[in-house]
Amino acid sequence: MITSPPGTPDIGDRADLVALLRRFYEAALADRLIGPYFTEIAGLDLEAHLPRITDFWERALLRTADYDGNAFAPHAALHDTRPMTAEHFGRWVQLWRASVDGLYAGPRADHAKVQGERIALAMLRRLSGSEDTDGDTGLGFVPLAALRLRTDL
């Protein structure tokens, strides 16, 4: 388990989410595996996207924003253009968790990591047509929380 330095703050407000999302997208856009989905396929305009995705996460974590969008639809469109696999979603989770751990520690930060993993798995299931509820998608996706990561290798 990654531990943050003592005194690391928890996610407290929308400004914290904006900082987190900027950090995450900086890593995701540069990533060789998932970056092309953002840059080449979606042509993501981060400044235009940031307020909407911040609403999504503010609603999910802080319960203080109204989000009435459909987060699945744009992912389905991307998947139709270039199918996304368990490897893609696993990488997304890895970058999301690292982004959270790099800035925050506490109950909301922990919830953000768990929620990100749940969302990734739900998206993968829907896109692949696998609606299994037992957590075994048969798709090769192993939630990162289930792995023991060793730094001494």
Rank of each mutant, 00 (worst) to 15 (best):
E117C: 00
D10H: 11
R97T: 12
F24S: 00
I53Y: 15
M1L: 06
R125P: 00
T85P: 00
F89V: 02
D136I: 05
A112H: 12
E40M: 11
Y37N: 03
L21M: 02
A146I: 01
W92N: 01
I41N: 08
V114M: 03
D134E: 13
R150V: 04
D101A: 10
D68T: 14
I34S: 08
R150L: 05
F141V: 01
D134T: 10
I2G: 02
A15Y: 10
P36Q: 11
A112V: 05
A112N: 11
L121V: 08
P9Q: 11
R14P: 02
L20W: 13
P107W: 04
Y37P: 01
P5S: 07
L44P: 00
A42H: 14
R59K: 15
E131K: 02
L149K: 06
R125G: 13
G129F: 11
A77Y: 12
P107R: 10
A146S: 15
D13P: 01
R148F: 05
L144C: 02
S130P: 00
P74V: 09
L33N: 02
A19R: 14
E117G: 00
P5C: 02
A98S: 12
Y67P: 04
L147W: 14
Y37R: 11
V18F: 11
R63Q: 13
P143W: 02
A71Y: 12
G140A: 05
Y67F: 15
M123L: 15
A76M: 08
P36M: 07
R32G: 02
T3Q: 13
D10Q: 11
A71H: 10
G138V: 03
P51Q: 15
L95S: 06
D134M: 02
L21C: 03
H49K: 03
Y104T: 03
V100W: 05
R32Y: 08
